[in-house]
Design a protein around this nucleic acid. Structure first.
Lengths: 344, 344
DNA sequence: ATGTAGTGGTTAAACGATTACTCATGAGAG
DNA sequence: CTCTCATGAGTAATCGTTTAACCACTACAT
């Protein structure tokens, strides 16, 4: 809390005076524009460092109409998806001197408008909109917003630019992996059908099975995104069914379901992965790594996605045209003990 | 992506021209300062709305040396603690028109300096520093930073202003609750001893027991913050010990440990809460609610803490002096099935 | 008539940087 | 000895607001 009053902050004029040149010269040196003798260049650089001069970004922004900041709006206060994404965005943008305003806007609907207004007043150069549920966007009116927008995770409007994980490829990765370790009867236990990602992953599960000649007679089991559901799903899969019809692998819609499912299998004395292999989705370490056995999973690479979101937005800010529609980024497989080896 | 070029943005001059007054008058109306006739006031307000005028925050900031933005630095990309905190901070500050730059700075050590530099160039009015581990602060040099700083979650330097959950009170809440439901032999299974919070909670556990005349012969069981540890801790607590010496309750250092512990108890056929009550810490819904039975826990009220952090920083920005040292905010008890009723 | 006070507004100078112009100097060409 | 030109630097306008200072005018008391 030292020298709070901003009065004594060092300006470009202080540097100029220290060297005995004009502010224009200092500016030229610092931005490497115009012609300056090597001698003064050195002197200016030296003085700037000595005085710990930091150009006032507000003045610069006012002059250039570039604030070097962007806003990220999300309705996720939970953090599972937003923060890793955010970390990637930040990392991709800081190299360009950009900082990111994060606005969490769950709460009264006017809150989104308030935040948006604050951001637009601050003249952010661009906006990132990201939803919690990998499904629905935060409910804000973005019409007439005079800066470029990138939608992340959740699907943006038709003519918007959206970046999202490749759900189908992720699901394919999971199912293919299960097939490669010798599984043939692969069930799918997942979240509520109203989620777009649920439908996408289920479709991909079915297609991948078909592509390997393993047309499944099994139905998708939809429930909620909880361990509890993973647990009860085991009953639906195994109860009152001849052992020959048991699945030898389960592809779960997320790691919570996977964790609960693995637990339930263990309690029934069904060996994982010996009798049944299990794979999850999200690669949420706290659940996947600490499951018994540790749960293989599909990682959506959110930090990488975030980086790409940031860079895409940068390009749009620079005036480059970006392809409309949804760009999908690949997921990766993380192998753990729950999918090791062939059927035992 | 419409009218990208900022050239056509409406300024205070446009409003002034539309009404036929000077920019000064418009400014007075909009800021409710100075004297203006009711007639022109109406006209200006009307024109401003009609033109969708948004005062340029950069110009305003330049003029007033107040950027209406603060920076939050954290090394938590994981999100468990940071995002709820952040949500609270944002909520507390948006009412004052403040926006929050979030910088995640795990990675190369110079990254922190880069972000800090970007923030200081943008003339943030204040800074919030928050660590991931509720223990260690991100490693940045903050000496000579010319804006007020609040440390959140993790302990700041001696003469800094820190806000953190009241760990001792939280632990007391947990243990008292267990005593109130009739438990007498209350064990404590927690994280690594090098964590300050681990030591604080353990001390409080012991003190609370003593205060109720239940001096414990049991040692604190230190492990890591995992379900796995909760699971193996059960062996240490119950194996090779006469049933009379078994604990009838366990206070866990976090919900992961609690979750694993409950699992292990169930596997051993020990009833929860019938024979052993279990309570966790953090109230991490994904683990606590979905444990079987659902896990009682201590909630650190991070959004509320975040709000307070934001408001404290506001006050410091306004020049009010804040008490140095650590302010502790109370935790609350969240009762779930794992601590219901007396010993069965 | 003169002074006083209040009203409703305008003017112009900041704030801190960038940048298109201008200018002085000295070197080399004719 | 004058003209041209390259070099290195300074001048001043600008970005969009805020705000202290000022001004014209009316009303009213002295």
């Amino acid at each position: 809390m030292r020298d709070q009053g901003g009065g004594l902050r060092v300006t470009i004029r202080d540097v100029a005076n220290a060297v005995g040149v004009s502010t224009a010269t200092v500016s030229k040196v610092l931005n490497a524009t115009g012609r300056v003798s090597e001698e003064t260049r050195k002197a200016v650089l030296d003085a700037a460092k000595r005085l710990d001069f930091r150009p006032n970004a507000m003045a610069r922004a006012l002059q250039s109409s570039r604030s070097s900041s962007v806003g990220l709006l999300t309705d996720d206060t939970y953090g599972r998806f937003s923060l890793p994404l955010m970390a990637g965005v930040t990392e991709g943008l800081i190299a360009h001197g950009m900082s990111v305003f994060l606005c969490t806007i769950d709460g009264p609907p006017e809150l989104g408008a308030t935040h948006l207004d604050a951001l637009l007043q601050k003249r952010v150069d661009g906006l990132i909109i990201s939803g919690r549920r990998v499904d629905r966007l935060p409910d804000i009116d973005l019409s007439g917003v005079p800066v470029p927008i990138v939608y992340a995770l959740s699907q943006g409007p038709e003519h918007g630019v959206t970046l999202a994980p490749d759900e189908k490829q992720g699901a394919r990765l999971a199912v293919t992996h299960l097939i490669e370790i010798g599984r043939r009867r692969i069930a799918h236990v997942t979240g509520p059908e109203r989620f777009r990602v649920v439908r996408e992953r289920a479709a991909s599960w079915r297609e991948t099975l078909a592509a390997h000649g393993l047309a499944s007679d099994m139905a998708v089991l939809n429930g909620d995104w909880s361990q509890r559901w993973g647990h009860t799903a085991v009953a639906e899969l195994f109860d009152g069914r001849p052992e020959a019809e048991w699945p030898d692998a389960v592809f779960c819609g997320n790691d919570q379901i996977g964790h609960g499912l693995v637990d339930a299998l263990r309690e029934r004395g069904i060996a994982v992965p010996g009798q049944v292999a299990v794979i999850g989705f999200d690669n949420w370490h706290v659940l996947a790594e600490d499951s018994r056995p540790p749960l293989s999973s599909i990682d959506m690479n959110l930090p990488a996605l975030g980086r790409e979101v940031g860079l895409t937005l940068m390009r749009m800010i620079a005036g480059e045209h970006q392809a409309e529609g949804t760009t999908r980024l690949p997921c990766t497989l993380v192998r753990r003990a729950s999918t090791i080896g062939p059927v035992g």
